[in-house]
């Protein structure tokens, strides 16, 4: 419905533009053959310019039709972008998970060596990883 309307509006504007073009051609011929004086020429040109403005007004109508017609697609695109952003977050979360595993390895190694300082440092890393993960999932 909207599309048919948009096409009709465009076709009408095209026809008005064509009329203005014909008027201009005829006007230039008349000027060249000295059929009309400057005053008459200016008046005809005013009419031609009015027609062009009418046509341009219709192109604005057609553009507004396009904008209205796109509302639904635009909404789908926004939804998709949001979904993709969530996906990006999820994938980043997987990466954080690997961090956690790697830090746990360090913790295990430190515990095995029974060195208090590395154990505390490793524990701190693990704690940060877990915090980062729970922050992501909120």
């Amino acid at each position: 419905m909207a599309l048919a309307n948009q096409e009709q509006v465009e076709a009408l504007a095209d026809n008005i533009t064509k009329c203005a073009n014909s008027i201009h051609d005829r006007l230039m011929k008349a000027i060249k053959n000295k059929e009309i004086d400057q005053n008459a020429a200016q008046m005809i040109f005013q009419d031609e310019a009015s027609l062009r403005q009418r046509a341009n007004g219709l192109y604005i109508d057609a553009a507004n039709c396009v904008v209205d017609g796109l509302a639904e697609s635009q909404k789908s695109i926004i939804d998709l972008i949001d979904t993709a952003k969530e996906e990006i977050k999820t994938i980043k979360k997987i990466a954080s998970f690997i961090d956690l595993i790697a830090d746990l390895l360090v913790l295990a190694a430190a515990a095995y060596a029974a060195k208090p300082a590395p154990i505390l440092a490793a524990l701190k890393e693990v704690k940060e990883d877990v915090e980062a993960l729970s922050k992501d999932s909120q």
């Binding site: 504007a13 020429a41 062009r52 403005q53 341009n56 192109y59």
Partner: peptide, 17 residues
């Protein structure tokens, strides 16, 4: 583009006349 075409013909047409 069509709007610009009408603008062009208005501006250049003025000088032509």
């Amino acid at each position: 583009k069509k709007t610009n075409e009408n603008e062009r013909k208005t501006v250049l047409g003025f000088f032509e006349v």
